[in-house]
Design a protein around this nucleic acid. Structure first.
Lengths: 356, 356
DNA sequence: TTGTAAGCGTTATCAG
DNA sequence: CTGATAACGCTTACAA
């Protein structure tokens, strides 16, 4: 407990109290005296003095001396203003902050920059001005912005939807395992007419979800049916509603809907509600993301993305690169598997509705 | 654009290029030369040199010299892990970060600390170790934690649900204006049996919402009816559902429900859906918070809290206090008014259902 | 095994 | 009006 107005102790205070020099204090506390070893007695005296004074090294002075701020820039996929529209990047940001903290780093979100500063190239300037040690990019929009950061000398990690050009470490999620499990459960319960609602963006990640869906179906000898595939421009609630409406208008309705995002799934549920179609009795639903799928009514079976693992690998990779003495590093490309959590939103297809 | 490996320019580089001393550079760039004025020509030369080199002062060195980190600690009401359960504190956090950034400060969220560090008193240590300049507390749980921070010498601001003891500036929201407007609209459309679902916590803020509700009714000569008042332990979806069930079981149902939080209102909507009661045709609903009320189906009329204003006043007050040369300051107590946004969730009471 | 000294980049003070 | 100088607190090479 520090008294009001009490000066916070410095390494000099500790040194004096322990009867040693400041250098010793630094060496003991960082446990990194390469060329010199300290006698156990002295060592203990320093430790005690530091504890008694409640000394902690001033991170600002340390940063200045080490030429490392211990701050990591993070550029989210979308502004933090829209947590409800884009829950995945939002949650990813939370995990990144936690993982960084665990390792003694802090996160500076570049999206917190005032809009006036958000033009292309300004992000690099913003981060350079603040002397961040490295940058994590979630699904950068263009290769140019990535290249700008790399050329500025920052260690850079790309997540989820990397740009292929710039030579950076990338961490992505493999949709296959979770999707396979989801389809396996659906098929095991008699579903064959399974609709897909997903985003049709040009990025491989979006196409991949559909490709995995088709691959999983193929594994069970189910032929793809284009009428059951709905591609939307984005993963939002409204698109989920609209596409579900289209599916319900079909002559032969699906018995299950696979929504490639929790928000889409929420829209699906709303549309089904309004049409008086009960879930899972009259329609099974599976979502992708598993952010709030478990809190919906009914709780949805969902393909889960390993966001925490993505965050932890990202931080780990970046710190390794930052703390590399020379600029040495080789880009790594890591893919982490999805999982699947079964809940109550998939039911056996009633016999009379099974296709002949 | 900085070349890879290029050293980032320092004030010495600028000084050399402009043919002046480092002190001049500092003085010109900070535009704060009290005792000395600079000739326009020299001034311009410095500015030009800085611009040409792309010089920006190193914030780390500046922080060390000024003994001010330009980092503000923020202790949210709830962990950022739960944006969906507690949207208000979450959004408040976003606004705080933006407002801080506008003024050249950064936010360090103490909740990002690993759980191992979250015991009482550890928050103060956490913030002291990082040398934050001041602390903003959203609805602190106990007076003790506030006192600990104040006694540690931090400038402290309390938001929303301040603890009355410690002498800090506080910023709260006055529920009256928005609640009055909401009730006025309900009454104008013929509602008299208006139910209230809210939290019954011991904090004045929670009691205040109910008090304002009753005061607003009284203004229209409507007597309070205890059977229509539901107090729950927390503002969550499930409570909203449950309480609505209880209201629907009443012999004489209300014609409108005032839910003292968006999450409660969401639960109300779910319960009404399941009971087959259409909104607004058979039941009017008004929420409090207006975070996602406008995105629900149907969009709800809602009492809005001025979160952005709270954030901006908080940052302003804190920075004023931080930048005060001597420890001088007088605690201020600011109350900001709620507003009301009318949407389509309130309808005229059908004649046959009006009480006689 | 320990102490000394230099320097990280900035800014404030104080002579010139 | 301008320029040298010291100090912020820490770390690290090097000397003792």
């Amino acid at each position: 407990m520090v008294k009001p107005g009490a000066r916070v102790p410095t390494s000099l205070d500790v040194a004096r109290r322990a009867g040693v020099s400041r250098a010793l204090v630094s060496g003991v506390l960082n446990d990194t005296m390469s060329t010199m070893r300290v006698s156990p007695a002295t060592r203990q005296r320093v430790l005690d003095a530091a504890a008694e004074l409640g000394y902690t090294p001033n991170p600002v002075a340390r940063a200045l001396r080490r030429q490392r701020s211990n701050v990591i820039g993070f550029l989210p996929r979308t502004s933090r203003q829209t947590p409800y529209e884009h829950p995945v990047p939002f949650l990813l940001g939370i995990h990144i902050a936690r993982e960084a903290m665990k390792r003694g780093y802090h996160i500076l979100e570049a999206s917190a920059a005032p809009p006036s500063e958000r033009q292309s190239g300004d992000v690099a300037r913003f981060l350079r001005e603040r002397r961040v040690d490295g940058v994590i990019l979630d699904s950068p929009q263009t290769a140019i912005e990535v290249a700008q950061l790399v050329e500025s000398g920052f260690p850079v990690i790309q997540l989820i939807r990397p740009q292929p050009g710039p030579p950076t470490t990338t961490i992505v999620v493999d949709p296959a395992p979770g999707t396979d499990a989801a389809i396996a459960q659906l098929v095991a319960r008699g579903h064959e007419r399974i609709a897909f609602i997903g985003a049709g963006g040009d990025h491989p990640v979006d196409r991949d979800r559909l490709a995995c869906f088709h691959a999983a179906l193929a594994r069970h000898d189910i032929a793809p049916d284009d009428r059951l595939v709905c591609l939307t421009p984005d993963y939002d609630i409204e698109r989920g509603r609209a596409q579900t409406g289209a599916l319900l208008a079909l002559a032969q309705r699906p018995t299950a809907i696979f929504a490639a995002g929790d928000n889409l799934a929420l829209g699906v549920l709303q549309a089904l509600y309004e049409a008086g179609i009960r879930v899972p009795d009259a329609m099974s639903v599976v979502s992708y993301d598993d952010i709030f799928a478990g809190q919906l009514i009914p709780p949805l079976s969902s393909v889960s993305q390993p966001l925490e693992a993505v965050a932890s690998r990202a931080i780990e990779a970046l710190i390794t690169q930052v703390e590399q003495p020379d600029g040495q590093f080789t880009p790594r490309h890591i893919a982490l598997p999805t999982g699947f959590t079964a809940r109550g939103s998939v039911r056996q297809v009633p016999a009379e509705r099974r296709p002949t």
